[in-house]
Design a protein around this nucleic acid. Structure first.
Lengths: 368, 368
DNA sequence: CCAGCTTGCTAATGCGTATAAGTAATGCGC
DNA sequence: GCGCATTACTTATACGCATTAGCAAGCTGG
């Protein structure tokens, strides 16, 4: 009794049709001689407790049928049916695989992938408005991520309004990097404050009494945090802080020149700390100035870097400082996102950085 | 006449529930005083031609209503209804984000992402080892990729049987790298043959008459292609080919030693060409042997590399050879995959490599 | 004046899945 | 042997949207 459909609309877009349509639960069901619902029960219970009311024999038949057909659930349908599809989105506002700053997101993604795999999630890379070509990269482009169970957002220039909306809608969202201005937005970030503070304390323990932070003219949270940690470190060591301990580079005349370096040293400064940025500008400027001033690094003064050195300076002696544990950051982000998806409480958002002893610090030069 | 649902099942999983249910097309419709179908027509026709049979007045009412409610379409529902999900899979048999061989797939992925974004596709990353939900890393893990509209496969050690099955099922699959042994498998690859041939012709034009190819003991298509191009280049230049023009390194005794190098030179060989591999073994061996033999590169002999130098040798003088346009390869792979998904004819699978002049070649040394 | 077209919309249906509700069939205690 | 719980399923329905058949009204033309 094949009831002939009254209005079948097979043959959608000519393009979309082409394919032998991957197997559906209905086909698995037919092959196994059960109903579609049974297939759904068996397959979704697979991971969960075995408590479902399906006999082992039937279960096995269904599983065999599914395997032999190569059945894979349709994520959109799963999602629509209001379950979850074990997909986590990753959305970056720059290209996810940046051309120039290779090292910036990559290690992070390594951690993301690893942790996601360990938790049984697959990743969907939502290609942001990244490079040209994308259609009207309007705000609705962001909504694609709702296909996944939750989404990780990378990049600084995030459209807050859109994110806010998602958060308000209860869509699980985690941002990489501290983001406290948006109430309710979950984020994970490196604990730059503690790490920077620790570097300062290290210098203080070596005997340095006047330390200067060289930073760039950028007010990203990552910069602010480092400065805060730097100042906290000074305070903890009982050293003078204040605005003169922080030097902020700016284009016109505020650069780190050999002259300025000498004048600092003349004032009794014996150690310098540079913030890390994408370009490594502050660190480069310091190193160059030291070289040009004819000074030698661990002997005449100590240098520390609040982060990892740029990869093209890999040949240089390893700077004292700390490493941002990007793998762990990625993993932490996934853990937090998974927690949100599961409706559990979020965990600690700060990930500790690892202190790196390095070879650019030593005791202050003898009094001369 | 609000017909009361018999079995509403609001209140799914406690976790999944928590969303303030953003507006649906039905609500927009109610507000605009039209049917849901009209809303769908208006909204989906927005981008397309205005040829839809909806009056401008109604259209405007719907658009206003949608805006005032802040309507955004549910991507899951859209995709379910449209029978495609705009997802392309990327399956690599090593980790997608390998820790060590960063540079091998990375540039390729850059191109993949860019092109995918341009075409409105998102990417799903599958990894051979991890393979989301299914812990069983068995061959059925491969089936997970069917979640996407099509899939890109990277890596040498691809289980042919499984791929064959997918291809036979009509699932769109593109392999990165030439793969002609599998009938019907689409692939994109770099045109190593032409590029290698061009390098040889370059050497011949410089006056070299005896050239030797140093390759590793690996029969990957990429190696074979280079050798073929090398031999074709010799032939095109009217130079002697044959087996003695190709040196195949092997572990036990067949290595490129300074002695062997000298003996080649004594026989009249003036130029050497190394194949590029993951490790850059052949090239390293050549360079080392040249150094140890006390020879100087562009003067005493010419060297060329059939590919790009390993990144850790970035400081060395740039070798003559060619660059594999990995970005373009990735883009080409996506284009081909998109074509398959759309049921169109596939395009040219070979991507041309760019000749790189470099500094390691010159004329043959004067007769001595 | 009505067949036949066009215009502008609605009703109905399906996409693939999850799940609540329903139905036999069996087991168990008394 | 009856009520009731349990097991093992199946049936029905909904998720939100796209699509298409269909309907009503307004035209046209002969």
């Amino acid at each position: 009794m094949e009831q002939p459909r009254k209005g079948p609309r097979r043959g959608r877009t000519p393009a979309a049709t082409g394919r032998t349509s991957r197997p559906r639960q209905a086909e698995v069901a037919r092959l196994a001689g059960v109903s579609q619902a049974t297939v759904s029960l068996v397959l979704s219970a697979k991971a969960k407790a075995q408590g479902s009311a399906i006999s082992d024999e039937t279960r096995q038949r269904v599983l065999d049928a599914a395997r032999s057909l190569g059945y894979v659930p349709d994520p959109a349908a799963q999602r629509l049916a209001a379950a979850r599809n074990n997909l986590l989105g990753v959305y970056s506002f720059t290209a996810t695989f940046p051309t120039d700053v290779e090292h910036s997101y990559y290690p992070f993604l390594v951690g993301v992938e690893r942790e996601a795999a360990a938790r049984g999630y697959d990743l969907v890379l939502f290609t942001g408005s990244s490079s040209g070509g994308a259609k009207a990269a309007g705000p609705e482009a962001l909504n694609r991520v709702r296909l996944a169970d939750g989404c990780l957002f990378l990049g600084r220039h995030v459209p807050i309004a859109e994110l806010k909306r998602m958060v308000a809608d209860g869509f699980p969202v985690v941002h990489l990097g501290r983001r406290e201005e948006l109430e309710g937005l979950s984020w994970v970030g490196a604990d730059y404050v503690s790490a920077s503070s620790e570097v300062v304390r290290h210098l203080a323990a070596l005997g340095h009494r006047r330390i200067v932070l060289v930073r760039e003219d950028d007010d990203a949270p990552a910069s602010t945090d480092r400065q805060q940690g730097f100042l906290e470190g000074l305070e903890a060591a009982g050293l003078p802080g204040g605005s003169e301990a922080v030097f902020r580079c700016a284009d016109p005349g505020r650069e780190v020149t050999p002259e300025r370096l000498r004048s600092w040293i003349a004032e009794g400064v014996t150690a310098f700390v540079a913030e890390e940025t994408d370009t490594g500008g502050a660190w480069r400027a310091l190193r160059t100035a030291v070289d040009e001033a004819g000074l030698s690094c661990p002997d005449d003064l100590s240098l520390a870097l609040l982060g990892s050195p740029p990869s093209d300076l890999a040949g240089d002696p390893q700077p004292t400082g700390f490493d941002v544990p990007r793998h762990q950051l990625g993993a932490a982000a996934v853990r937090m996102l998974a927690a949100l998806v599961a409706g559990e409480a979020a965990e600690e958002p700060l990930v500790a950085c690892a202190f790196r002893a390095g070879a650019t610090t030593g005791g202050p030069p003898g009094p001369r």
